[in-house]
Write a protein that binds this DNA or RNA. Structure first.
Lengths: 246, 246
DNA sequence: CGCGGTATTGATAGGTTTCAACGGTGGTGG
DNA sequence: CCACCACCGTTGAAACCTATCAATACCGCG
């Protein structure tokens, strides 16, 4: 291996040595060949960053220069209304990107806050854009991610606009469990990282309603709730709620 | 001018002659130099398409191959829930893009329906991707549009999740009037292309509630309603509602 | 001119929020 | 190590906003 492709990086927590090999960890670069990864490494500044629980990755109005891929941990994104109100617009876990909403304006349009101690990759957008001009597979990946961000936002709109509390919770839990399952965690049982208030905010409900609705679903035998531990015991039943066949 | 760059195109309504000059009409190509436009014309299939009122541009599940830029007219996008319910997720007018939600999956995830006789540019995605690898300005434009799509979806979530009916209408009208104003139409008076039901669907309200709320805003002296003609008479007043200082 | 879809308005019902009290949990400091 | 405190979650009762149901009015169109 050519030693010239080793890099010493200045990060917020000191200097780290890195090679193109490490970039293979980045989901956004999945599908790239070894050669492409090496090429990317030459032009893309990808910095590891640590965000403690309740820490801010970026805040509304911050200058945008990087997109972030979650390595480990859990984030929420929050939009702030002109009055004080906050609205959670999503939860992000390993492999998911943060900051895509800001590419157009070069200013972040929401807050990204860690719900547990987390690690992210910070990828300089300008480098990313340049690299994706060179490497079609990267361009495709990047476009897919933005596209997926749009599609999932529209799905959330559907939740918010035309579902009752029970349906919103069912749909939220199915989505969450699915995403956990894909990442190798149990698709039926999870330790929630967010409060009832945060779930409620995403779903357009008050914390009390979330609590009540979870109790109702529990009494219906669809899941078990113990504080922040949720176990889905009848996911077909949850799906049935979504199809209106409760 | 080099005559070789003239093109004869097969469109749904016959053959049309087109030159790189026509491409200058496309907002997505704004900011490109003459030379870049000529280059784009050589590799990008951009087809004009007509969509009559109530016509379908694409439907959920359709194969994705092009993104569409509205030339004239007015569209709505609709997501369908697993039960029959429909949710309008946005209205699109001249210069805005449709189909971006499908880049990732190559399948459309929503319906795009014309609310009046409309014209669109159909831009082959593969060509667009190739061209944006060649032309950084195009890449930037395209990324901006996707990014804006994400940001605006999050803004709609805020409406749906944490605003009352009056605030949702105020915010909707301000946004609509602003977008019309940018396009050279009156920013205070508009002929709505969509029904109360469609507005309601976007805002998570029933048509009756939309109607009632419009009447309330009218009685408050903020606007005037005559069927689908709406005139905003006090837009600071509307803004005040958004800031909770009604 | 009359029809059909759309908009308005009223009365009532229903789901969610609000207000409030209580219980549980985790963290901190004595 | 335990006690205390603050925060989060649960549950209840009443209020509120929006949905629903229904009747009427309005416009566009054939």
């Amino acid at each position: 291996m050519d030693p010239s492709i080793f890099r010493v990086l200045q990060t917020s927590s000191g200097t780290v040595e890195r090679t193109w090999h490490d970039l293979g960890e980045i989901q956004l670069l999945a599908g790239l060949t070894r050669e492409e990864l090496q090429r990317v490494d030459r032009c893309l500044v990808a910095e590891r960053r640590k965000v403690p629980q309740a820490g801010v990755l970026f805040r509304t109005g911050d200058r945008f220069d990087s997109v972030y891929e979650v390595r480990t941990g859990f984030f929420k994104t929050v939009v702030n209304s002109s009055r004080g109100a906050e609205q959670v617009t999503g939860f992000q876990m390993a492999g998911e990107l943060l900051g895509l909403e800001a590419v157009g304006t070069r200013r972040h349009a929401l807050d990204a806050i860690a719900l547990e101690d987390s690690l992210v990759w910070a990828l300089r957008y300008d480098d990313l854009a340049a690299a994706s001009r060179e490497i079609p597979a990267l361009q495709e990946q990047f476009h897919c991610r933005m596209s997926a961000g749009i599609a999932s936002a529209h799905a959330t709109m559907l939740q918010l606009g035309s579902m009752c509390a029970e349906e919103r919770l069912a749909s939220f839990l199915l989505d969450l469990m699915h995403r956990l399952g894909v990442r190798g965690f149990s698709p039926t049982s999870a330790q929630l990282r967010m409060s009832r208030a945060e779930i409620g905010s995403l779903l357009g409900l008050k914390p009390e309603t979330v609590s009540r609705t979870l109790s109702k679903l529990q009494n219906a035998g669809l899941l078990q709730v113990q504080q922040r531990t949720i176990t889905v015991t009848d996911s077909p039943g949850l799906r049935r709620i979504l199809r209106g066949m409760a």
